[in-house]
Amino acid sequence: MTDVDLRKLRYFVAVAEHLHFGRAAEELFIAQPVLSRQIRALEDEFGVRLFERDRRGTALTAAGEQLLADARPLLANADALRRRVIRADGGVETFTVGFMPGLIVTGVVRALAERHPGLVIDPIRTTWDDQTDVVHDGRVDVSVVRLPIDPRGLEVRPLYTEPRVVAMAADHPLAAKQTVGIADLAAEHLLQDPEIVPEWRDVALEWSPAARGLRADHPPVPAFRSVEEKLEYVAAGRGIIFLPLSVKAFYTRPDIAYAEVPDIAPNQVSLAWAAGRNSPLIEEFAELAAAEMPA
């Protein structure tokens, strides 16, 4: 078998994500016939069919599903390799650190910089959606993450835990309370994935089998891109969210109230980097983070 062509893999992933050759071709800025030929060539190289196409549309075969699962990390690793090589060619040693909202990496960054005066350290703010993507594609060397994450392809080292609070509108009936129980929130509209707060999910399902924050009287949860967007919905009285305690300190505002929720698990803060990377700087940063960052 010949070596896998990364360009063909990128074409395949575009089609697999859109399940539409026309839209994938537009995204890739190539003609649809060219894209179709490249996909056929990739199928010939593997000796399998990757897509089923009929009048109803395009669907992945079992082989296509497997290739999609493996292609994404492979392409991300290729992007990471390219970024690291380009940074090395710049003649200045650099080290990039991802961090989630509420997490302060300044102490660790300063400690590492003091040990390596010529090292340029760049912090990069991440979100729930990309806190591990930035590791896979090489935008950062390490990322201070909040669990849960998909650990595949990553080395993950726990740092510390912190309590979580519930955010609600300032005029919410529970807004004056310092502490609330998870059962008090079972009827609320949750503006985040229930899997992130399994304690709420289980109580809400017991309260109502149609719960999970998506009951018939509640609209679907939008695809939020930031904490700020979620808090706008909270302030408008359209639901609640659970946040780590440190995030609360960064988003104090008069139209939002916070309360401690002692009967949900704390948030785990960890350090993540690409599995298999043997970097003395990464190990040194991990040791400093363990010493500097405990809550």
Rank of each mutant, 00 (worst) to 15 (best):
S208P: 11
L147P: 11
P151R: 01
V85G: 09
V145W: 01
E195I: 06
E188Q: 14
G118I: 05
P209L: 07
T127Q: 11
G181S: 10
P220E: 07
T179L: 09
R84D: 03
R115I: 03
V145K: 04
I124E: 01
I121D: 08
T94Q: 08
L103K: 00
A176H: 15
P194I: 05
I182C: 12
P198K: 02
D193T: 09
E162A: 13
M100R: 09
P151W: 02
D184F: 01
V105R: 08
V156I: 05
D171R: 12
P209W: 11
T161Q: 06
H218F: 12
P163K: 11
L191H: 12
S143P: 04
V135K: 01
P148N: 05
R82V: 07
T132P: 00
P222L: 08
A175W: 15
V109S: 05
T94K: 06
V134C: 08
L185V: 10
R125N: 06
L185M: 13
I121N: 01
V203E: 03
V221W: 12
R212G: 02
R115F: 06
V221H: 08
I104R: 14
T106P: 04
A170H: 08
D171H: 11
L190I: 02
D150Q: 06
G91V: 14
L159M: 05
P158H: 04
V92L: 14
D129T: 13
P123R: 08
P151I: 05
R87D: 06
D89C: 15
G118P: 07
G102P: 03
E188D: 10
A216G: 12
D193Y: 09
Q192I: 07
W207L: 15
A111H: 08
V156F: 00
R115H: 00
D89Y: 15
G90R: 02
V92P: 14
I86Q: 15
Q131L: 07
R157C: 12
V166D: 02
P117D: 10
S143W: 01
L103T: 03
G102A: 12
L185G: 00
E93T: 06
I104Q: 09
T94P: 04
A88W: 11
D141P: 03
H136V: 11
G90H: 01
R201A: 11
I124S: 00
R146D: 15
T179V: 10
V197Q: 00
L147R: 15
V203T: 01
P151T: 00
A187H: 12
L159G: 04
G91N: 05
P163S: 04
R157F: 07
Q131N: 14
T161F: 07
A167Y: 01
Q178N: 02
R164K: 13
D184P: 08
E199T: 10
A175I: 15
Q131R: 15
T96S: 13
V134K: 06
R115N: 12
D184R: 10
P209A: 15
W128H: 10
R83H: 03
L81P: 11
R139T: 05
F224V: 00
D137V: 03
D202E: 09
L154V: 05
E93W: 00
R225S: 10
V85E: 10
I104A: 07
P209R: 10
E114N: 09
E93P: 01
I121A: 14
